[in-house]
Design a protein around this nucleic acid. Sequence first.
RNA 1: GCCCAGGUGGCGGAAUUGGUAGACGCGCUAGACUCAGAAUCUAGUGUUCGCAAGGACGUGCUGGUUCGACUCCAGUCCUGGGCACCA
Length: 869
Amino acid sequence: MAYDPKTIEERWQRYWLDNESFRCEVDPSRPKYYVLDMFPYPSGQGLHVGHPKGYICTDAIARYKRMRGFNVLHPMGWDAFGLPAEQHAVETGTHPAITTQRNIDTYRRQLRSLGLSYDWSREVDTTDPRYVRWTQWIFQKLHERGLAYEAEVAVNWCSALGTVLANEEVIDGKSERGGHPVVRLPMRQWMLRITEYAERLLADLDLVDWPERIKRMQVEWIGRSEGARVAFPIVDGDTTIEVFTTRPDTLFGATYMVLAPEHPLVRKLTTEAQRSDVEAYVAEAARKSERARMADGEDKTGVFTGAFATNPVNDARIPVWIADYVLASYGTGAIMAVPGHDERDYAFATRFDLPILEVVAGGNLAEAAFTGHGTALNSGFLDGLQTKEAKARMNDWLEEQGKGEATINYKLRDWLFSRQRYWGEPFPVMHLDDGTVKLVPEDQLPITLPKLDDWAPTGEFETPLSRVPEWIQTSDPETGANARRDPNTMPQWAGSCWYFLRFCDPHNDAEAWSTEAERYWMPVDLYVGGAEHAVLHLLYARFWHKVLYDCGLVSTKEPFQKLLNPGMILGHAYRYYDDNLSDDPNAALHAYPASAVRFEGERAIAAATGDEVKARWLLRPDVRFDEDDVPVHPTLEDIPLEEVTEKMSKSRGNVVSPDDVIDEFGADSMRLYELFMGPLEKGAPWSTDGIPGCFRFLQRAHRLVTEETLCDGDGTEEQARLTARTIAGVTGDMEAIQPNTAISKLMVWSRDISRDGSVPRAGAVAFVRMLAPFAPHLAEELWSHLGNTASLTHEAWPEADPTLLVEDTITVAVQVNGKRRDEIRVPANADETTVRDAALATENVQRHLDGKEPRKVIVVPGRLVNIVV
RNA sequence: GCCCAGGUGGCGGAAUUGGUAGACGCGCUAGACUCAGAAUCUAGUGUUCGCAAGGACGUGCUGGUUCGACUCCAGUCCUGGGCACCA
C-alpha cells in the first residue's frame, strides 16, 4: 500500500472528532500545560498559508506535552467582532452575524483539515451573547473601580463612509479608502484608566518570559519619564500655566512658553491684538490630522498669544506662544521652552528670534542646542552643580516654595474604549435623565445588539445604534425611570482581553469562569502569535488581567508566561502602477512601471506627470516573461513589472491557500514543511519547492514501517545507538521549541536505520511516537499498523537508554596551528597523553610539522587536539 | 533621525560554554532500474588549483583579542522591524 495522505488524514480527523481525543478536564493530580494561539479574526478570505505557521508549531508542542504526561489545554476560538463584517453589511445588506458565522465555519474547516489538536468543545466566539455577557460584566467591574469614565475626545469622522476612522486610516486629511474628507469632531466617549496601571505594567514585565524586543516595545510605549511639574503664573492674571519638564535644572534658561493649540487656556490668555492670528492658527491645526502635524517635522510654526508669564525662579517676564510642536496629549499640553538646551525649542527660538540663554556648560549655543549633562551656570542657586544634583536641588526648591514638585510622567494615554460602530459589544450602562450613568443590573446582561434594517450610512454624524430609537430608549428595571442606552460599542480589543480565561471554563453560565478552573489552568504557559500585537493587545490584556487580579478574580499577576512570535510568511507578487485612483472598472487608465514612479511620503506619484497613481499587483501565473526573461504585463505594452515580496493580503493578490497545498500533498506534508522551513520566529517568502522533500520523507517513513519486515527487539548495536541518539536529540529540540532540527534528526533516522539490517521493531515504535507531533495522521496510521488499537495521543514519549548514548570510540580532530589537518579515532576514555601522542603520530601532522618541535599542544577532551609550532 | 533584530553554499537553513563551518532538506551532476519517461534508489555537490595525493581561500566588510573566532571586542556597510516633535 502506497502512502495515501488523503485517506489516512480523513480517517484520523474523523476518529479524533468522534472520540474527542483532545478533550481535557481539570485534574489536580496531573501537571497542566496551557498552550494558546492568538485566536484569529475570521475574515472572508479564509486562512492563507502564513496563518498556520504558529498554529502548527503550538500543535506540535501540545501533542508532545500530552505524550510527556501533561494535561494539556489547547483551545481555539474566534475574535469575531470587527469592521469588515460591518462593511460587508453596508455593501450587501447581509447581517454581520451571518457573514461571521459563515467565515467561522470556513476557518474551523480549514483548521481541522490541518489536523490541529484543539479541544473543540471549548471553542468560544466573542460575538456569542453568552460570551458578550461576561465581557460586559468585566466592563462593569472596571466601572465599579472607577477605571471607566466618559470624556470629550476628538474623533476622525468621515461623513462619506458614515464612520469614525482610526488615525492610521486617515492619510493627509482624507480617508485611506476612497480618499473622502475627514474632520476631527469632539465626541463623548468611554475611556479606560490604563494609566493608573502604568507602573505595574512596566514593573511586572520582569515576571514574564517574553522576547526582549517585545518587552522593550512595551517599555517604550509606556514611556516613563521622571521630571517635575512647574507652575508659571500669568502676568496680570489669576491663572497659572503648569508644565512638565525632565530638566528642572534648566529652569533659569526658560525664555518663553508654548501651549499646544488645543490647550484650554489659549482662548483666555490671547490678547485682543493677537486674537485673529491665534484663532486662524488654532483652526489650521484642528484641520490637520495628528499624523500630518508630525510629518511637518523640522519646520516649526507658531503664533504669539500676547500674554506673558513669570518664570518662578527668577521672576523673568517671558512671552507665551502657541505652536503645534507641543502636543496637547502629553504632559500638561504646555512647555517651558529652554532653547539653549532643547533642539526643538532651539529651532523655534531661532525661527522667531527669541532669546537663547546658556544655563548648562558644555556646548556651543551659536551652533546648536546643548542637550547633554554638564555644570549649571547663570542659574542662581544651582550654579556649579552637575546636572543630576541640579535637578534634585531644583525639585527640592520647587516643593519648598510650593511652585512645583518632582513627578513621573508617562507617554501611555488612557485607552479610548468606544467605537461609533454596530458590530461590537454594547455598553452595559444606562444614561439617566439627570445626566448620571448607572450600570445595568447584572441579571439583565447581556445587552444584545438590536436588529438593523438599513445599513447604509446616512452621512449624519451619528452612530449606527443611535438610529434605533426603540433600542436606545429604555427604562431602569429597578426604578422604572427613563433611561437611554449608550449608542457606542466596545472596540475589537475587548473580547480578546479575557478569552484565555473563558477557555478555562467556557460553558459556565453562572460565572465568567470558576475559581477552580482558573487556579488550575492559569497562567498560559506558552502564548504564540504575531508581533504586530506586541503592544496593543498584549498591553490591554495585561491591564484587564491586573484589574481582575485586584478584584480577586484571577490568581496570577500576569496572564502569559512565555511568549513567542512566529515570523511572517510572505507572498510573491509583481507590481506596476496606474492612475485609476477610484478603482473604476471602466476607466481609460494609464499604466506606469515602478521606474516611472516616485514617492512623496506614502503617496505614489508618476514622475512624468506629477499625478498620483495607485499600485497594482499580479500573481506569477498571470505574468508574461519577455525574451530577456523580464516579467512584463500580460496585455499592457511595455510595462515591465517589479518583483516584490510582501505580507500576504487580498489587495496584493499574493495569497496562497493551505487548501491547495493539502489537496496536493496532504496536511502532514504541509505541517512538516512549515516546521522544517526554519525557526518559528523567522519569516520567509512562501515557496512550495521544499514540500516534495517532506512528502518523500513521509513516504519513506510509511514504507519503512509497513513494507519492510520488522525484526523484533532493538536491532544491531548501531541501530540501537541511532534510535537512542535520535530520541535524545528530538527530545532536546522539542524542549527548546526547535521543531526544524527535530525533524532533521527523524530524517536521519529513517535514512540510516536499515543500513545494517532490517528495521527493528523497538526503533520503529519509538520513531512513530516521535513522528506524532509533526505528522500526526501518518503517525496514528503507522501506530495502528504496529498492532495498537488506541490513538497514540496519550502514549508515552520514548526515553533514550543513556548507556547507548555513550560512545566507546570517538573521533578527535587534529589541528596544526589552528588548521584541521587530520582526525584520529581514540577510545572515549583515553587520557590526554594518549590522545596527544596519537595525534602527533599521524602522517599528516608529521608532514606539517616538517621536523619542527611543537611549541605547545592543546588537548580539548573529546573534541580536538591543536598543535602549535 | 533614534532604537532593536539579522547578514553563513545556487536556495531554505544547521553548528551546547570560543573547539572538525555548511547537519537536514531543496536544487544540480552522475549512475542503477526502465524500450523510454515518471517515480524510486545509490553516489557526489562551498569556491578554487591539481590526474591524484594534497593545498589555498571561505560565515557582509575592515581591524583586534586568542593556540583556535560564524561565535567575543571596536568600527563600518546592507536588509528587515519598531518608534518618530513625548519636553
